[in-house]
Amino acid sequence: MLYFASAVIITYFFWLVLSGHYTLLLMVIGAVSSLLVVMLASRMAVVDREGHPIDLVGRAIWFWPWLVWQIVKSGIDVSRIILSPSLPISPTLINVRATQKSAVGLVTYANSITLTPGTVSVEVEGDEITVHAITYAGAQDLAEGDMDRTVSRFEGGRRAQ
């Protein structure tokens, strides 16, 4: 029920941003249609914690800026590699261990790896992620597990620490 309400609110917010006309009729139509959409979605059984982890929003406030900082740092590294005439790449394939407990945490970790330029998660199975990194140093940094611990902290919060 909580996830149903939050899905309606987010859908309605999306409608309000896209519409830009704030008359009574249009706002009521928007509310009705977002309710209808979420009802259809709940028949598909996609309105649950996995699709919609609202309890993580509080911790996202520090996680997202941290992720953006990682992206900028490694993005500048990869840009320097591309612009240097000798193209100093050393492609590496490596298996890293993921310590997240839930599927949401695992997806967050795999997507964080992919989103950071220089590393791409190629395959996920159980708690093992195969990563393709553009430099050997980048793969070693990832294997040290700094990002893994941060995502675990983001996912687990109080109890997992």
Binding site: I89, T92, I94, E125, T130, Y136
Partner: peptide
Amino acid sequence: PKLDHDETGGHIAG
């Protein structure tokens, strides 16, 4: 992929 270092030992997850 063309690799310089293969740390997986030929084992790819899954």
